[in-house]
């Protein structure tokens, strides 16, 4: 498979020693009738092979937009990437011509979406939609591509793959549909898989199955997995590291156990406190006061300050807090991280 990939989709300039995926200072703006919405304001993170990075945040914090910017599937207009780099193995994808960019998609970096029912084309069988990848990217014959499609459905543990390959998306259950999405994303053996809220639309039991499947496939293939979610509970078991996003910025980045034990940013702390916990049964659940800011009108300084109980004057003034290195492999964009850590 790697041979074919080398021939068909050669990407010049890749450096095997460079990080698998590195996002630097990414800015994305949406030009709308109501003004410029700053969806992503300097997001930065990296990902290594075999690693799972969870990107955590409330809806509207720019995590999905970041993912789509990495894939290069933002609708332009209204979206514009105004600044930053998306480096895959050292190559800045944002500088690649569209034809080469297209070959990166699905081949090197693939993505699965939240709602598999609307993300799959309703009028084509899942077999067609899977086989399409092999036909377009690998130039396979119809029959061979169909055979590969069945294999893929098998790999994501869909029972009766041989007959189900002819079925249409609406004939699958929610969980099975998400498995089809995963199969589609893994078809061309990508090295990076971005999963945008892959289990949000599913029942709790099915959620666990899908997360388990993703973790297993990642291990088997030594893929880098970017898991986008708003649910801290989901990521605890699967993720290696967590990047917490707020108003288009990564406000804290840390290995998963550190962050659960001692959050370094007030926002992370608030998120953790809003998870229902068995040992705190009977106590009132805390909620984060206020709402995330409108992206057309992000507060000066630290964007979280209007909702923050640690906020003092420096927080309300530009520039925004830098990424303080608060521990080995840990950063937080908070002037008062020491207080938050409880030191």
């Amino acid at each position: 498979m790697t041979d074919i990939k080398g021939q068909v989709d050669a990407l010049p300039g890749t450096d095997p020693r460079a990080p698998l995926l590195q996002i630097n200072d990414l800015h994305v703006e949406f030009h709308t009738r109501d003004g410029v919405a700053k969806a992503v304001n300097g997001a930065s993170f990296w990902l290594n092979p075999g690693e799972t990075l969870a990107i955590l945040g409330e809806s509207g914090c720019g995590k999905s937009v970041t993912a789509q910017a990495i894939m290069g599937i933002l609708e332009t207009p209204p979206a514009h990437i105004t600044q930053g780099e998306v480096r895959y193995r050292g190559v800045d994808l944002l500088k690649l011509p569209e034809a080469q960019r297209r070959k990166v998609r699905a081949n090197r970096i693939a993505m699965i979406f939240q709602d598999a029912l609307s993300a799959l084309n309703p009028v084509y069988s899942v077999g067609f939609q899977l086989a399409e990848l092999f036909r377009v990217h690998r130039g396979m014959s119809r029959g061979d591509a169909r055979k590969r499609a069945v294999e893929l459905l098998d790999q994501v543990r869909i029972p009766g793959a041989k007959s189900r390959v002819h079925d249409y998306p609406h004939q699958f259950s929610g969980g099975m549909r998400q498995r089809v999405m995963i199969a589609m994303a893994l078809a061309l053996d990508p090295e990076v898989l971005i999963a945008d809220e892959p289990t949000t639309a599913l029942d709790v039991t099915v959620q666990a199955q899908i997360m388990g499947l993703l973790a297993e496939l990642r291990r088997e293939r030594n893929m880098g997995l970017v898991l986008i979610t708003h649910d801290m509970g989901v990521v605890a078991d699967v993720a290696d590291r967590i990047s917490v996003m707020y108003a288009g910025r990564v406000v804290e980045e840390a290995p998963v156990y550190d962050i659960y034990a001692r959050p370094g940013h007030p926002y992370t702390r608030a998120l953790l406190e809003s998870i229902p916990r068995l040992d705190l049964k009977g106590q009132q659940l805390s909620v984060i006061q206020g709402l995330p800011p409108a992206l057309t009108d992000i507060p000066a300084g630290c964007a979280f300050h209007p909702r923050c109980r640690y906020a003092k004057d420096p927080c309300r003034q530009d520039p925004a807090p830098p990424a303080y290195s608060i521990a080995p492999h840990r950063t937080a964009r908070c002037h008062f991280f020491r207080e938050v850590l409880g030191e």
């Binding site: 789509q68 599937i73 070959k103 998609r105 699905a106 693939a110 993505m111 993300a119 799959l120 084309n121």
Partner: peptide, 10 residues
């Protein structure tokens, strides 16, 4: 949404 998926498929 399926258009986004199709684009993500390269």
């Amino acid at each position: 949404d399926y258009v986004r998926t199709a684009r993500a498929k390269g």
